[in-house]
């Protein structure tokens, strides 16, 4: 499978995530779209890792090249999990105070 396909796929998913961030007002949905972006990144990382691995296999059958990409994905997941816990806590706190998760509602701070 040519790497471009994966790149296009992931960029598309990534951009959909961005569009979601830009078009939705619900903080939770926005946050979910960020998660979508992260997943696009993860997929691309794995694809690249396999690509590099494939290239390296040509020279050495026991090559472990490319594993760092997958490890990175692991760390992204770790970070994402941590972020989610903090993020949801913040959103809940916000909701507690304002009974809303609308980000357009966040406009006390401006100018």
């Amino acid at each position: 499978m040519p790497i471009q396909y994966y790149i296009y796929l992931c960029l598309t998913l990534f951009s959909i995530g961005i569009i979601g961030v830009l078009t939705r007002r619900n903080a939770i949905i926005v946050f979910m779209c960020v998660e979508l972006m992260l997943n696009a990144v993860n997929l691309l990382l794995v694809a690249f890792s396999k690509m590099h691995h494939g290239v390296a296999l040509g020279s050495s059958a026991t090559s472990m090249v490319g594993i760092e990409g997958q490890i990175f994905v692991f760390f992204i997941m770790v970070v994402a999990a941590a972020e989610v816990s903090v993020g949801l806590a913040i959103i809940v706190m916000m909701y507690r105070n304002t009974h809303s998760v609308d980000i357009n509602f966040l406009n006390r701070l401006k100018n």
């Binding site: 961005i18 961030v21 830009l22 007002r25 926005v30 980000i103 357009n104 966040l106 406009n107 006390r108 701070l109 401006k110 100018n111």
Partner: peptide, 17 residues
């Protein structure tokens, strides 16, 4: 320029993109 700082996260991210 202050008006650019609209307070809306959406606008901020839009400009970043």
């Amino acid at each position: 320029l202050r008006l650019l700082q609209s307070g809306q996260v959406g606008n901020y991210i839009l400009i970043m993109v």
